[in-house]
């Protein structure tokens, strides 16, 4: 059988003194689209940050493309989309400059060649931001900014995309663009692991959902079905929940 792309077994991690992951298993096979779901504080962001090596594991094993994490050097195979922060950078940067940073996974310390500039241009076109290439990223909306971050990850032409909350704070139009982009990538054979707050417009793409609660996996299988009003098409889930809700709270808005 083929090596899984991501293999996390018995993984524990702490932030400060607080244990955030308490022995989770997570396997992602080639071509799969896996969503990590869970409440705020359930450890889903920490889990993906551990997968990309940014949170050290206190115990457990991590293998990427069949190579133990310590020996893994082939970072160009991974495209990472971190959680978008609203803090503007200190110095302005254009959309093209930010996306080009993603290409450094291939060029490393060398100079960019024609093929690299082509890859950046293609990535910008994929997310529909080619016409904004010369604009400052500070002038973009939240959704456009998220598209730029995804283009940055795609510029390295990765086999595995890892995305942390790609739909957070993204307007409806951009959500659609992102879903289309992702569909194209998946059709091209890209493996995807993404943290989601809710399945939303990505639902049809997702092969498997892994649900975390309090740092443990509580569900690994087909994506959970939305219930009640949450199943209505176009439902925007914007109201706050109680923390440990295993049952969705109904606001009675539409009843």
């Amino acid at each position: 059988m083929e090596q899984p792309v991501i293999s996390l077994s018995g993984a524990s991690a702490s932030l400060g003194a607080r244990p955030v992951l308490r022995g989770i298993d997570l396997t992602v096979r080639r071509g799969e689209v896996v969503a990590l779901l869970g409440a705020n504080g359930s450890g889903k962001s920490t889990a993906v940050r551990a997968v990309v090596g940014q949170v050290p594991l206190t115990s457990g094993e991590l293998e990427l493309f069949g190579t133990p994490r310590r020996a893994f050097r082939d970072w160009a195979r991974i495209g990472y989309v971190p959680q978008r922060t609203t803090a503007a950078s200190g110095v302005p940067a254009t959309v093209r400059e930010v996306v080009s940073a993603g290409r450094l996974a291939r060029t490393r310390l060398g100079l960019p060649r024609k093929a690299d500039r082509e890859a950046v241009r293609r990535a910008l076109e994929l997310v529909g931001m080619a016409d904004r290439a010369g604009d400052s990223v500070n002038a973009l909306s939240g959704g456009q900014h998220q598209r730029v971050l995804i283009a940055r990850a795609l510029a390295g032409e990765p086999e595995l995309l890892i995305m942390d909350e790609p739909m957070a704070g993204v307007d409806q139009a951009s959500q659609q663009v992102l879903a289309d982009t992702l569909r194209q990538q998946v059709a091209g054979g890209t493996t995807v692991l993404l943290v989601l707050h809710e399945l939303g417009p990505l639902e049809p793409l997702i092969d498997r959902a892994v649900v975390l609660r309090d740092g443990c996996v509580v569900h690994d299988g087909p994506p959970p079905k939305a219930v009640g009003q949450h199943a209505l098409p176009g439902h925007d889930h914007v109201h706050p929940h109680a923390d440990t809700a295993s049952e969705p709270i109904r606001t009675g808005l539409l009843t």
């Binding site: 409440a39 957070a168 704070g169 079905k225």
Partner: peptide, 16 residues
């Protein structure tokens, strides 16, 4: 961002 689906609470519906 003020986009949809970005409430302050947790938003995942889970039916274990």
């Amino acid at each position: 961002g003020s986009g949809p689906g970005f409430g302050s609470g947790d938003d995942v519906e889970v039916r274990p």
